[in-house]
Computed example of a mutant assay.
Amino acid sequence: MTPITEQSSLYDQLENKSVEELTNYINQEDQKVAKAIKEVLPDVNRLITAIVDKLNAGGRMFYLGAGSGGRLSVLDVIELPTTYGLPKGIYNAVLAGGVNRLVDALEEKEDDINEGWDVLVASGINSGDIVVGISASGTTPFVLEGLRKCRSLNITTGCIVSNPSTPIAAQADYPVVVITGPEFITGSTRMKCGTAQKMLFDMISTTVMIRIGRIEGNSMVNVNPINDKILDRAVKILMQKTGIANYSEAKSILLDHGTVKNAMVELEKKIN
């Protein structure tokens, strides 16, 4: 049976369609993605809980992926140190072909059954960590073999796939199987599958960061003020959280302590 991600598009003769028709059809397909994710939220919640438990116990999180999904996982991971002040090395992405070659799109590397595991070993992977495989098809050799090796050593595994009953899901302790249906362009899983993966990465990492204490209220109290825009945001968060009315004073305090959270802690000590 043809995997759902490879089944023929519901649309044909696309070259004869107008711009208005094409964008309308794509939009119709995109609207199916959030509904598909809603169907698997219980599985997403179980995966998130497992990640939170590992991180709270001192472990690490690794995405293991190739192609569009793997690249999207890298983009998710690289934003966490700035947005949440998360120390590097806690939340990681292992990409077929190497994270340092992200823009090269080395699709042939997804067939390499050794690279993913070799990178995990070099990272000191152990039973305190969790590895989440990313594969729209659910069959990518790079991901599959990495998860197999993990399970053989009692390393917790999860996955995000877009076909039912896949080999990768069978190797996952916490599988998330989000069925988005045939792609608008037959087999082009950078589209709906990629959109689903991006939405899930946002959902997973944001919820994890909240649950491990990187957010207070709804504010980025651990944001790393690395540029003027983020510095301004952090100063205003500090003013809102502490009641400091003077912008220059709040900015000076923030720069002295590095983050809103650190500044709040020091101000509380002075008050006490």
Results as ranks from 00 to 15, higher is better:
13 Q>T: 12
197 Q>L: 01
205 S>T: 12
122 A>C: 09
100 N>A: 14
80 L>C: 12
88 K>F: 04
73 S>R: 02
27 N>H: 15
104 D>G: 03
155 I>C: 07
43 D>G: 07
59 G>R: 11
60 R>M: 02
64 L>I: 13
164 P>C: 10
135 S>R: 03
64 L>E: 07
209 M>H: 07
261 K>C: 03
257 H>D: 11
64 L>S: 04
65 G>M: 02
104 D>W: 09
216 E>Y: 10
114 N>Q: 15
245 A>W: 01
101 R>E: 12
212 I>E: 06
232 D>S: 14
48 I>D: 00
2 T>A: 13
146 G>D: 01
119 V>H: 08
115 E>I: 07
228 D>L: 15
140 T>Y: 03
132 V>E: 06
74 V>A: 08
194 G>A: 07
259 T>Q: 06
75 L>G: 00
144 L>P: 00
236 K>G: 06
183 E>N: 10
108 E>Q: 13
166 T>V: 09
2 T>F: 07
71 R>Q: 02
124 G>L: 10
223 V>C: 08
84 Y>P: 00
68 S>G: 09
37 I>D: 02
230 I>V: 13
128 G>E: 11
41 L>S: 12
73 S>N: 05
209 M>T: 03
220 M>E: 01
19 V>A: 15
105 A>R: 12
197 Q>P: 00
68 S>M: 11
269 K>F: 08
195 T>K: 06
54 K>F: 01
176 V>N: 04
258 G>C: 09
184 F>P: 02
123 S>H: 14
194 G>S: 05
154 N>L: 08
111 D>W: 10
247 Y>Q: 09
133 G>P: 02
246 N>P: 07
230 I>G: 02
41 L>F: 14
260 V>P: 02
30 D>W: 14
115 E>A: 13
39 E>I: 15
198 K>A: 05
238 L>G: 06
70 G>R: 00
135 S>K: 03
183 E>I: 10
243 G>T: 05
61 M>I: 08
136 A>C: 09
221 V>Q: 03
161 V>L: 07
199 M>R: 12
42 P>V: 11
108 E>G: 15
191 M>W: 03
62 F>N: 04
199 M>Y: 03
128 G>Y: 02
145 E>R: 09
36 A>Y: 05
249 E>M: 12
46 R>F: 05
253 I>H: 07
224 N>T: 14
148 R>T: 11
13 Q>L: 10
59 G>C: 06
193 C>P: 04
131 V>E: 01
17 K>C: 05
38 K>Y: 12
36 A>T: 05
